[in-house]
């Protein structure tokens, strides 16, 4: 199945892209997909990154073909 991943803030910076389409095999829940996407990226605090599936913040959803996923770190600047 194909899933679109959108990256924000320092996650986009670490991934060096704002968006990509991933080909995934097997059933995944959102938190597992998050771990997979962040694996290997240089981010000090991965726990603070939140995941939204189809514009809904939720890490327990099962990922489906065609889903759009967003990885959101908190921002502090002001």
């Amino acid at each position: 199945m194909k899933v679109t991943i959108k990256y924000f803030g320092l996650v986009a910076e670490a991934a060096d892209k704002y968006e990509e389409v991933l080909e995934l095999n097997g059933a995944l829940i959102a938190s597992e997909l998050k771990a997979q996407c962040l694996n290997g990226l240089s981010i000090a605090d991965k726990d603070s990154v939140q995941i939204a599936v189809n514009q809904n913040l939720d890490d327990t959803t099962t990922i489906k073909d065609g889903d759009e996923v967003a990885l959101l770190p908190p921002f502090a600047g002001g």
Partner: peptide, 22 residues
Amino acid sequence: VFPKSTRQNISCEATGVLGVLP
């Protein structure tokens, strides 16, 4: 949204910012 706080406290001073965004 963010149940856990993070140490990655990165300010505009540290990262740079164009004045229009704030």
